[in-house]
């Protein structure tokens, strides 16, 4: 696999498509264990990301990721803004100057993104946050040199579903303690959409 500038842009467009289509669903998940704005936050942020990417010229994958990061940081509003913003910023600096990235480099970038998310939010796996999706995805990338697109989507899906039974220890949902059990973590669901979108881009032979 090899992701080029156009593939990364397509990845973000597909992510945006699912986030827009599931905007109300994401907000309803956040209403159950948060303040009900996750869909609105993510839809606003990713719409801006797509507008930015489709009206700019890019030579490198890192510049695309940098703009994704800056747009999410300034437009999202909720906790997911600094978290996803940090994730894409770390990815950008990891692949700095590259015109294309292979599976190993992407895995490295995801590893740095995960480290950044954990530092920013002080969350670990099992705390019922988007870390619960990002960490298994990073492990999946590390486990093999060639990435199977279907397997990637499956890993992300299972990880997302695993948040349902967890008790939140970070983020707004943590205030609800055991009342948070039985609900999916909204940020994990939107992360799942982002990795499914990547899987679709890879499926098409990127």
């Amino acid at each position: 696999m090899e992701l080029q500038v156009a593939d990364v842009i397509q990845w973000m467009e597909k992510s945006n498509d699912s986030i827009q289509a599931n905007k109300d669903y994401l907000s309803s998940l956040d209403r159950a264990i948060g303040d009900g704005d996750h869909g609105i936050n993510m839809a606003r942020g990713f719409q801006e990301v797509v507008s930015k990417l489709t009206t700019s010229d890019y030579q490198t994958v890192s510049d695309v990721l940098k703009d994704v990061s800056m747009t999410l940081l300034s437009k999202v509003g909720g906790a997911s803004g600094p978290l996803f913003g940090t994730a894409f910023l770390k990815m950008s600096t990891t692949v700095k100057g590259m015109e294309k990235v292979d599976a190993n480099q992407l895995g490295e970038a995801f590893q740095e993104a995960l480290n950044g998310i954990k530092l920013r939010g002080k969350a670990n796996k099992g705390d019922k946050t988007l870390v619960d999706v990002w960490e298994p995805v990073v492990e999946f990338f590390k486990s093999s040199d060639s990435i199977d697109a279907n397997a990637l989507a499956e890993v992300a899906k299972q990880a997302m579903e695993s948040t349902k039974e967890l008790e939140a220890r970070r983020g707004r949902a943590a205030y609800l303690k055991e009342r948070s059990i039985g609900h999916l973590d909204p940020g994990s669901v939107s992360s799942y959409y982002i990795f499914t979108a990547l899987s679709e881009v890879l499926q098409k032979g990127a």
């Binding site: 906790a79 600094p82 978290l83 920013r120 707004r172």
Partner: peptide, 11 residues
């Protein structure tokens, strides 16, 4: 105050 405020402050 809460949640994202600290993350954005650190950023």
């Amino acid at each position: 105050d809460i949640g994202s405020a600290l993350m954005n402050a650190e950023l």
